[in-house]
Structures are given as C-alpha cells and as structure tokens.
Amino acid sequence: MTAGLRYVYAVCRPLGAPLQAELTGIGGAPPALLHHHGLVAVVSTVPEHDFSEESLRARLEDLDWLSATARAHQGVIDALTTVTTPVPLRLATVFRDDSGVRSMIESREDDFRRILDRLEGRVEWGVKVYVESGPQEAKAPAPAAARPASGRDYLRRRRESAHAHEEKWRTAETFAETLHERLTRRAEDARLHPPQNSALSGTPGQNVLNAAYLVSRADSEEFVELVDRTKGEVPGVRVELTGPWAAYSFSGEER
C-alpha cells in the first residue's frame, strides 16, 4: 500500500503555540510540522491517486472535489494565521516525500525568509465594491405594463434608462477609486485584482473594486472601522470586507 504524497500548505517559522488539536486538512488528515533549516513546512499525507500529476488534471475539472480541497486547504491556513505568520503555498503543492519538501525549502530559503520578514505581524484584508441592481434592473417589467405611447416615447425612455445606468456606474467607480486611495494610505501595501464575474461567483451586483490590503495587526481595528464607515455612503453601492487572511496577495504565491 502506498504511503501517499506530501501535501504542503504553507511555510513559516517555528510556532510559538501549538496548532488546534482537532485541526484536519485535505481528506481529513491532521497537518504535521516538518522542521528544516530553521523553517517549518506544514504538511499532511494525501493519496497519490488524487494528487499525482495525471490525476490532478482530471480532478481539477471536478468542481465539488476542488471546492472541498480548497476549503480544507484554507482551513489549515486560517488556523496557522491565528498562531503565526505563514507563507501560504499554491493549492495542490505536493512532493513525493519529506526529502522533496526539504529540497524545496532549501531552494527557496532566502525568498521564504525575506517574505516572512516582510509579512511578520501583518495580515491581508479584502475589500470589494459592488454596484447593486435596482428592482427595475433585476426584473424586466411585464410586456403589457406601462407601454410607451409612441416610438418617440419608447426611445426617450430608453435614453433616460441608459443615462441613469451610466450615471450610477460613474458614481460607483468614483467612489471605489476614492475608497481605494483612502485605504491604501492606511495600509502598508495594496493590490488591485481583476473584478470578479458575478455570474461565476454567484455574488449579486457588479464588482467594480476587488482589492487586497496589507495591514499590521495593530492597525487592523482602525482599518476595519474605516471600511465600516463607508458602508451605505453611496446609495446602490455595496462595500464588502473580508479577512483577516494570511497575506496571499503579498507572498508571491497564487491563491
């Protein structure tokens, strides 16, 4: 029977406090700590039939499996973030055995130490701004309702509707730009990510700002209060705050 592969969630410095006793990772396996050169890889054993290179290509097309794997991965990262500053690795980072993990640490040791120095005592906050759909946009009126008196009346209504829509977007974009500038001044670093597709994310509204901010733990309460004060500031615009997260956007690793 195969011993499986070594899955690596993150690299960090030796922990000052133990991980949660009941913490589980991919497939329900408890994470372990692999010490090497003064750094720690947080690992667990995963089945080769799921995580070999060939198997992964097929597995990544299985959205249910991918979602469950991503949740388990994120659960370990979240638990680490409460006790240390981790450098999260990409989803499905696997090696044949512990020797492969040690070789990876050695090859990237200087980068890991540099990133850990930069991220120490800091977390990532995510802020998204959405243009909310009004009742008239969410559901089209019935064909017989409020029929225009003429073709000219119809065109006038279309122009007014288009103008209102454009004005709403301009207002939202101006608000998002101003908010990003304000938050960037309160953060140590910031990243702008591409707007999310609402059809894929399932989140209502149109995303006009998708940003991440690197903030010290000591300043996080003030940062959160600043974001909270902007909620409801502009009608039809929704502000969402997420975090604190491990600093994915500033670690050089992809989510």
Rank of each mutant, 00 (worst) to 15 (best):
P135A: 15
E254Y: 02
T184S: 13
P204M: 05
I26C: 01
G38H: 05
V101K: 07
G232E: 06
P244D: 03
A190W: 01
L200D: 13
D62K: 08
E53Q: 12
V8P: 06
E54Q: 08
V215F: 01
D97Y: 11
H36G: 03
H165W: 12
G205Y: 05
L241C: 03
R255E: 12
T81C: 08
G243E: 08
E106G: 01
S249Y: 07
E22F: 09
P235D: 15
A247W: 09
A92H: 04
V8I: 04
G232F: 07
V234W: 09
D62R: 10
A247H: 06
R90F: 02
E48V: 08
G134A: 14
A212K: 12
S220M: 05
L63A: 10
A68R: 11
D111M: 08
G126I: 12
A172V: 08
Y248G: 00
V87E: 06
E22Q: 15
Q136E: 15
R156W: 11
M104P: 00
E177W: 03
V129F: 05
A146F: 14
Q196N: 09
M104W: 15
A32D: 14
R147C: 12
A199R: 14
E120S: 13
A172Q: 13
A3N: 13
T69H: 03
E173L: 13
H37Y: 05
G121L: 08
N210L: 03
S103N: 10
V123K: 04
